[in-house]
């Protein structure tokens, strides 16, 4: 995410574009990230109900992934999943593996 300089931003933190929170990354401070075991998931959507940041991505009533731009890594989804389908993994490790793969 490119950070703008102080002369390029709106005074007083005013927001003039609608829906800018979609593109704004709030997940940068996550220390661990949820990973879903698709084999175990029954798409009960409890994780979607409980996620405080709306970061469980659902399409056609099915969980299809995690919005890592906004997931803060709180682990609530992993805690609530009745199927223990979500595991929290170390963020740094996950990033290294992403980089390697």
């Amino acid at each position: 995410m490119k950070i703008k300089g102080w002369k390029e931003i709106m005074p007083g933190g005013l927001v003039t574009e609608p829906g800018s929170s979609v593109t704004y990354e709030t997940g940068t401070w996550r220390s661990s990230r949820p990973t879903i075991d698709k084999e175990r998931c029954t798409h009960c959507l409890l994780c979607w109900v409980f996620c405080p940041d709306g970061s469980i991505v659902v399409r056609d009533s099915k969980v299809v992934g995690i919005d890592l731009k906004h997931c803060k890594g709180c682990g609530i989804c992993a805690n609530e999943c009745p199927r223990h389908a979500i595991t929290m993994v170390d963020e740094i490790k996950a990033r290294v593996e992403e980089g390697l793969s």
């Binding site: 703008k4 300089g5 102080w6 931003i9 005074p11 007083g12 933190g13 005013l14 003039t16």
Partner: peptide, 20 residues
């Protein structure tokens, strides 16, 4: 339309103070 008083994260709070 404009939003006043939105949350300013670590990235833009300081730049806004610099503007101020």
């Amino acid at each position: 339309p404009v939003t006043f008083g939105a949350f300013d994260h670590w990235d833009y709070f300081f730049p806004h103070k610099r503007q101020q």
